Computed example of a mutant assay.
Amino acid sequence: MPKSSNADFAEFASRALDAYQRDLRTEPGPHRHPWQPLEDELVADFLADLMHHCARNGIEFDEALDDARRVYINERADEGAYNLGSTVQLKGPAAQEAEAAGLPTRGVITGLLIAHDGSPDYYLRCPGEPRNHRFSAADLQPAPAFQAVTTHRGVVADPLAAERALVEATARIGTADGRDAPARYDDIEDHHTLLGSLSSWSGLSLERLSEILQPKFAAATRQLEAVAGRWEDGPPGVRPAGEPPGPAGLATQSFPARASEVSSTRADPGRDPSHQANDLTQYPRVAR
């Protein structure tokens, strides 16, 4: 038996609505009309009666509706909808706004929201950003797949995993530097490999990508140093004036020094303008 298409599924629903409509014509209830109802009213009546059916038979209507929405999104994947984990890039005004702010335009789908009209909005996470951003399907298009990267700790197959591995490697380098100890060669090599791969995929320069990631680098380094108990001599990683950097410092000297200047002006389309000012506070503005 050939697999049914989405057009077939729509036809199945049309037949069910036709049969339901015929019943309405012959036995109109107190809120029914004997004439053909408008399409949206017909669907609303059908759903209302399904709710009665579920209540009578112990079926959780809301759970069934949530399941139906998820199935609908998955079935539309072949028509241009995006699944979780898909790599996409911004287009149109959304892309222009990100590029003007020096922010990445490529990312990974991390969630979805179904609007009342059935159209999906997507949550997108881009490298370096601390939160998801919501975009409509019209703002997105498929992006090239992220090429898997082989590191000393395993293979990294997606950009968000590559970012996590890069942050962890950089934190280990920074912790060693704070102890005036040499960093592991594996971490230095992984740092350069992952940073280069993310830069190539995202389209951002090595310097700009490092700048955007600097707050995450600093936070992860502080956390690792706290675990190691390296706070007794003041701020970790600070060298006496004039002392040359060690091997770990050389590995990280491409990092921008002025991470406090990193900020974002990305705005989510369709959001209330009164909320945009709050979005500006989401990006850490402190450096080690």
Rank of each mutant, 00 (worst) to 15 (best):
Ala176Lys: 13
Ala143His: 06
Arg164Asp: 12
Glu232Asp: 10
Ala219His: 11
Leu140Trp: 09
Asp158Pro: 00
Leu206Glu: 02
Ala148Pro: 06
Ala171Ile: 03
Gln214Leu: 12
Gly237Ala: 10
Val167Thr: 14
Ala219Cys: 01
Ala157Trp: 07
Thr151Asp: 03
Thr150Cys: 00
Pro182His: 12
Gly229Ile: 05
Thr193Ala: 08
Ala169Val: 06
Leu224Val: 04
Leu198Ser: 05
Leu213Asn: 03
His192Lys: 10
Ser200Ile: 01
Pro144Arg: 09
Asp177Arg: 15
Glu232Leu: 13
Leu140Glu: 03
Ala138Lys: 12
Ser200Trp: 00
Arg172Glu: 04
Ile188Ala: 09
Arg230Trp: 11
Pro142Glu: 08
Gly229Arg: 08
Ala218His: 10
Glu207Gly: 07
Thr221Trp: 08
Gly229Tyr: 02
Gln223Leu: 08
Glu168Tyr: 04
Asp158Thr: 14
Leu195Gln: 01
Gln214Asn: 03
Gly196Ala: 02
Leu204Val: 03
Asp186Cys: 03
Leu206Arg: 15
Glu163Pro: 02
Ala148Lys: 06
His192Leu: 12
Gln214Val: 10
Arg222Val: 14
Glu163Val: 09
Gly128Val: 06
Pro182Thr: 14
Glu189Trp: 12
Ile188Thr: 11
Ala162Tyr: 10
Pro127Lys: 05
Gly229Cys: 02
Ala218Leu: 11
Ala138Tyr: 13
Glu225Gln: 12
Gln223Arg: 14
Ala181Thr: 12
Asn132Lys: 15
Ser136Pro: 00
Gly154Gln: 07
Leu209Thr: 02
Glu207Asp: 05
His152Leu: 00
Arg184Glu: 15
Thr193Gly: 01
Lys216Val: 00
Ala137Phe: 11
Val149Cys: 01
Ile173Gly: 01
Arg131Met: 10
Pro235Ser: 05
Ala157Asn: 13
Gly237Asp: 05
Leu204His: 00
Lys216Ser: 10
Leu194Ser: 01
Ala183Leu: 03
Glu189Val: 13
Ser200Asn: 08
Asp139Gly: 03
Ala161Val: 08
Trp201Lys: 00
Gly196Tyr: 12
Phe217Thr: 09
Ala226Thr: 15
Ser200Val: 13
Thr193Arg: 09
Phe217Arg: 06
Gly234Gln: 07
Ala145Gln: 12
Leu224His: 03
Leu213Gly: 05
Thr170Asp: 06
Ala226Asn: 10
Ala162Leu: 03
Val155Gln: 04
Gln223Cys: 07
Glu168Met: 08
His152Trp: 06
Ala143Thr: 06
Gln147Lys: 04
His191Thr: 08
Arg153Asp: 14
Ser205Tyr: 09
Gly174Ile: 03
Ala171Gln: 02
Asp190Asn: 13
Leu166Thr: 07
Asp139Glu: 05
Arg179Glu: 14
Ser210Gly: 15
Arg134Val: 08
Gly154Arg: 05
Pro182Arg: 15
Ser197Cys: 02
Asp187Gln: 04
Glu168Val: 10
Leu194Gly: 00
Thr170Ser: 13
Ala137Asp: 02
Leu194Pro: 07
Trp201Gly: 00
Leu204Met: 13
Asp187Gly: 06
Tyr185Arg: 13
Leu160Ile: 15
Cys126Thr: 14
Gln147Tyr: 09
Asn132Arg: 15
Asp233Lys: 09
Ala228Met: 04
His192Arg: 12
Ala143Gly: 01
Gly128Ile: 12
Arg172Met: 02
Glu232Lys: 15
Leu224Trp: 04
